[in-house]
Structures are given as structure tokens and as C-alpha cells.
Design a binder for these strands. Structure first.
Lengths: 340, 340
DNA sequence: CCAAAAGGGTAAAGCGCTTAACCTAATATT
DNA sequence: AATATTAGGTTAAGCGCTTTACCCTTTTGG
């Protein structure tokens, strides 16, 4: 009841296993005619080559690791989907690893991926900077996606988070906002830092000073965004706008406003980040900063798979893409009367 | 620059590779003392056993396949996360496969998983019933999750979808609704069928007949839910409530109502299904039917992993869990004046 | 017409690990 | 004291595949 092996095929076709192997891979010495025959036998026997065995022989496993904070977070779910699609179309499969940005988890997963001899790792997770840095030593191709890792000199693709924040700030500034705050997810993650920096910078250029108390560190959840916003709204000089470093937080902000009886965007503008399906589920629809996920993933994949080949040891490449402002309904001039 | 192998460890420790292997796996003949020594050497050499090689020897690959329609769909993203967590805690990793409910994709992925010799497959996808049915023949442990597959006599865990729909119907009925419609995602999927059946049944028992035209087949997307709802709202005798077989559709319904200037829940009640984070992002918050994802996944995993052992060939087990109604804000008595 | 190069195919050596069979020395049994 | 166990280790045979080195026909060119 064992699955068919290359031996079965060879026997049935009356050739050596070497020929079968050659026929499968289309290389080595093999006549066109014989090849057809073998292929036919394979078909008949419903033969499936074992990736395991072929990997052991020093070839690739055609498996990739994807490290992200959490697949249940819509942004990363979208990334996971994009990665899966492009990987699959190239014959790879991907092992998704949700790290929750926790060092131990990152470490455990990296070990695992090593043991499984994946052909490469896509890093979209935060946390474990020092741990991740070790990856540089390993012979494991690595590419970062949507973030950078301090001290990890590998290729990667990201969007310009500083610029994204700048876009958000400009939009809010143009609407006339002066008192603003930012909800910042996990500040250990570079992308989050950049977002804060960019926002602060833009405000600074406009002559507005963003105080430390206006930057609220949050966990990455709706609940936490709500909590932080509620706190913000309780202030005497409450801000007229909040910039959230991701959409979960933005949804939380919306909820908080609603609970506090403060209307968005009339009394409070909120802009999110990532443009996931969440931004399209809220009411009002979220104004947000979009990242070109598909393209990022595509490029990252190419860097990763390509990096095994000629470019091994080449200078790491960092591609940075441009974010875009998607204007929807959650932003307006401060103090605007509600339209409907 | 090759990674350390079992030979390196054996040489360094002055023992045979068999002993190293025994030391690692804690079985076979090996003295306590020698074992410690070997472990120490492994540590020092930073040795990581190759899962590939050990799998080839007939052991397990410690990899699972997860077939779902789409990881980017919040419900399945949550399932994927739960699966990942429990699998990881048991030493397994999982290859997520988004099939979009398309037969070719299902087929391709199954082939792939076979070639990779996964230890088991978790099926949460729709589509490819006939293709999936073949799985029964294979020596590949399979368990369905959150759905059944016609003609696939394998174990599985699901929630009682019929009952879930019944809960929704009872709620709506109790509120006084008479004219209702349902937005049904892909009717090829058993869970969707059951949901429709259950809803229809409850209405029937209450003396209300659900016409075919009141059951709108939809693709699984916000857009499509919106489209269908818009159509519904254009009718003369438009329904006062919609039951959506998933949350994406429910969000679409909400959007449609808003666009049509119909207020929810005052003029239209909508109930969703799945209780994902979407239901908590909308405004009004979605009344919905919740499935116990964590538990389902846990049980499914146990069935899958356990099924390799003693129970091989045993009668397939089907566990069914109970759904719950989560009452939020999107439902109310028909014709109710808005409260705020 | 013969040597040389091609073309087509095969045997066999691994890849890194597990395990059954086997061996040896120490301990238990009568 | 002689034999039977047992504990602790080792050897070697694979697992299913790739690939190198080698061999045997055909062509081909001079």
C-alpha cells in the first residue's frame, strides 16, 4: 500500500531509475522518445516524485518560511495570501509563522525552518532584532518585507513609511488640523517608528510640535486603539485628529469616538494605515495610507528566489515603494458640521 | 560551509551515528551518561537535525496542509492562526493553501501536499468535492474542519450550521420580522447550504415561506454582498431583515443600506455569520452567529494527529459543536425609530 | 574506411538519518 | 561456577532521489 516510487516506474518502463529521473527533470541524457514513454508510465502509475527525497539529494525543498506578527491581522493576512499565490505559481509552498513579535517565538520558528531546510525566509515580523540578526550568518536566503531589521544586512522591500506618515500629516494639515495625536503600535518595529517620525517631522515643518504625550504606544488590537483614543478624548484640549499606525488601531479609534459620542469626521478625524479590508468595513469609511502589497510581495519573492543564484553574496538590495493616501470619509476639516 | 550533520556530532563525541540518533530521540539503547555527553556536543556544534533526512527514513515530516478558501478572509485567517498555534505547540508546521474554492487549485495543492509528504491535511475549503473524495483512497490522514465534504468518509469537526441559521431566524422572528432574505455564499459549500436550509426551515415553522428569489447566491466578498443587498432594497416589498451566510456579505449589506439611505437596524436588520473581527469594526456593530474556532481547531487537530495511531481505519468521527448568537446592534424590531 | 566525437543510457555513490540485527561486557540466576 | 539476561553500543542496510563517471552505439569528417 506504499506510494509509487521511482523504482516502480523504472521497472515498469524497463529503464534505469536514472533515466526516469532525467525524464522527470528534463535534463541529463534522455532521448525524446524514451522520455515520452517514461512520462506515460508515470502517468499510468500515478507517480508523484517525493520532494523529500529529492531535497535530500541537495536540491531545494521548494518551501519558504514567512515570518509575520499574526495572520489574523488583516494586513498580514493579505500579505500571506499574496506570498502564497506568487510562491505557489513558482512551485513553492509557504509555511506561515505568526510570531506575535515575541522573541522566543521568532527563535523557535527560525530553528524550525532551518530544520525543515526551507529555501528561504521572508521576514515581515517585528521583534527579535538581535535574533534575526543572526540570520545573516546562516546560509539561509532571507529577505525582509514591509519592514527593516536593524543589523540584518539582507535585501528587502518596504514602502516608505516616513513618507506615508508625511502624506497623512499633509492631508490633515491641509484640512486645518492643529491638535493631533498618533496611535503607535509596537515601537520596536521599524515601520512603526518611521511612521511616527514622519508624522512628527511634517508637523514640525508646519510649525506644530508633537509632544510625547501625544504619541500613544499601543498593542496591535482594536481594543487597544479604543482604549488609547478614549484616553485622548478625555483630555481638555483633545486633538481634532488622530493618525493611527495601523488599521486595527484606527477601528478602535472610531469605536472610541462613537462611544464617547464624538462624531467622526465632524469632531474628530482619523486616518489609518494599510488600507486593508477593514478600512472599507467601517462607517465612516476610513481614510488611510495604502501600501502596494502585491508588488511588494512580488519583488520580495524575486529577491529571495533570485538571491540563491548569481547574486549570492552580492550587496543587499533595498527596494522602497511609495505609499498612497486613500481619502475616504473619516477625515474632514476640524469642527465641520456633519453633512448628512 | 555546510551545516553540521549527525556525522560531525558522532565524530566529535567519539560515538557512532546510531548513538547520536538514539540520544536525540531518546529511544533505542543509550546510557544516560553518554546521552548527556552527546547532547552537550550537539549544543556546542549547534547541530540541528535535518527533518528532511529523518522524514525520508519513513518518519513523519511534521508538516500539515491546511486547505481553506482564502487566508485573506478574516474567518479563515482566524482559523489559520488557531491551526498554526496548536500545530506549532505540537511540533508541527503548516502549509496554508488558499484555494478560492476552485477545483484546479484544490487539485494542485493536494498534489503538492502529497509530494511533500505532509503528515495530514485539514480541509476547510469548499469546491472540489469529487476531487477531495479521492483523498479517502490515499493513505493521507484527512480531517475536515468547519464543513463536510460529500462522499468523503473522514473525521471532522464542524459547528451545526443548520442550528446557527435557526438561531438567527429565531432572533429575527422574535423581533417581529416577516419579510426576510438571505445572502448565501457559494452554495457548493455544505456549510452554506446548511445555513440556508436552517433559516428556511425556521421560517417555515413560523409559517413564513422563503421564496427562491429571497435567497441570493453571492461570491464571498464585501462587494458582492453590497450588490445583492442593493438589489434587494430596490424591491417594492423589500425585506426588513437579511441573514448573511458570512461576515463579508454582512458588511456589504451594511454598506448597501447606507448607500441607499436605509438605516440599520431601524429599517433593515442584518445578521452575519462567523463573528470575526469584522463584526466588531462596523457601525452599527454586527449581530452575528459565532463559531467556537479555537475549540474546533483543537479537536480537528487531535483527530488528525490521533488518527495516524490506533484509530487508523476506525470509523470516521464527526464532531459537531454548537454555534451561538451574539446580539449586537445591527438587529432590531422592524420599523423601529432610530434610537440616537 | 577508420578514428573521433556525439548521443543515449546505466551503474553506483551518496544525501542525513533511523532501525533491525548483531556484538560485547557486565550483572543476575540457579 | 556456568549460563542466561540485560544494558549499552555498533554495523550496515536502506528511505527515494540526483548525479557523476563510465560504457556502448551511431554519426560524422577526413
Amino acid at each position: 500500500m506504499k506510494p509509487t516510487t521511482i523504482y516502480d516506474v523504472a521497472r515498469e518502463a524497463g529503464v534505469s531509475i536514472a533515466s526516469v529521473s532525467n525524464a522527470i527533470n528534463g535534463k541529463g541524457k534522455i532521448g525524446k522518445k524514451k522520455r515520452e514513454e517514461i512520462l506515460k508510465v508515470m502517468e499510468r502509475l500515478n507517480y508523484q516524485p517525493s520532494v523529500i527525497a529529492s531535497a535530500l539529494t541537495g536540491k531545494k525543498t521548494y518551501t519558504l518560511g514567512l515570518l509575520i506578527p499574526d495572520v489574523a491581522n488583516p494586513f498580514f493576512a493579505e500579505i500571506a495570501r499574496a506570498v502564497e499565490d506568487i510562491a505557489h505559481s513558482a512551485g513553492y509552498s509557504v509555511i506561515t509563522c505568526s510570531t506575535d513579535n515575541q522573541d522566543e517565538r521568532v527563535l523557535a520558528y527560525i530553528r524550525l525552518l532551518e530544520q525543515k531546510s526551507v529555501d528561504g525566509i521572508l521576514i515581515g515580523t517585528g521583534g527579535g532584532a538581535d535574533i534575526l540578526a543572526q540570520l545573516a550568518e546562516k546560509p539561509l536566503p532571507t529577505v525582509t518585507i514591509a519592514r527593516e531589521v536593524q543589523g540584518l544586512p539582507v535585501s528587502g522591500v518596504a514602502t516608505d513609511d516616513f513618507r506615508g506618515a508625511t502624506l497623512a500629516a499633509a492631508h490633515l494639515l491641509a484640512l486645518g488640523h492643529r491638535r493631533m495625536a498618533v496611535l503607535a503600535e509596537d515601537l520596536k518595529v521599524s515601520s512603526s517608528q518611521e511612521r511616527v517620525r514622519g508624522f512628527r517631522f511634517s508637523l514640525f515643518e508646519a510649525g506644530i510640535r508633537l509632544e510625547d504625550r501625544d504619541i500613544l504606544p499601543c498593542a496591535s488590537s482594536i481594543e487597544d486603539g479604543k482604549r488609547a483614543t478614549l484616553e485622548l478624548l478625555r483630555r481638555e484640549d483633545r486633538p481634532t485628529a488622530v493618525f493611527c499606525s495601523n488599521e486595527l488601531l484606527a477601528v478602535g479609534a472610531l469605536q472610541a469616538a462613537r462611544e464617547a459620542g464624538i462624531s467622526v469626521p465632524a469632531e474628530l478625524s482619523v486616518v489609518g494605515y494599510d488600507n486593508t479590508l477593514l478600512s472599507t468595513a467601517t462607517n465612516p469609511l476610513l481614510t488611510t495610507i495604502a501600501q502596494p502589497i502585491e508588488q511588494m510581495v512580488k519583488l520580495a519573492f524575486e529577491l529571495l528566489i533570485g538571491s540563491g543564484q548569481e547574486s549570492a553574496g552580492l550587496v543587499p538590495q533595498r527596494i522602497v515603494m511609495q505609499p498612497e493616501l486613500v481619502e475616504r470619509e473619516s477625515t474632514a476639516m476640524p469642527g465641520t458640521a456633519e453633512l448628512d
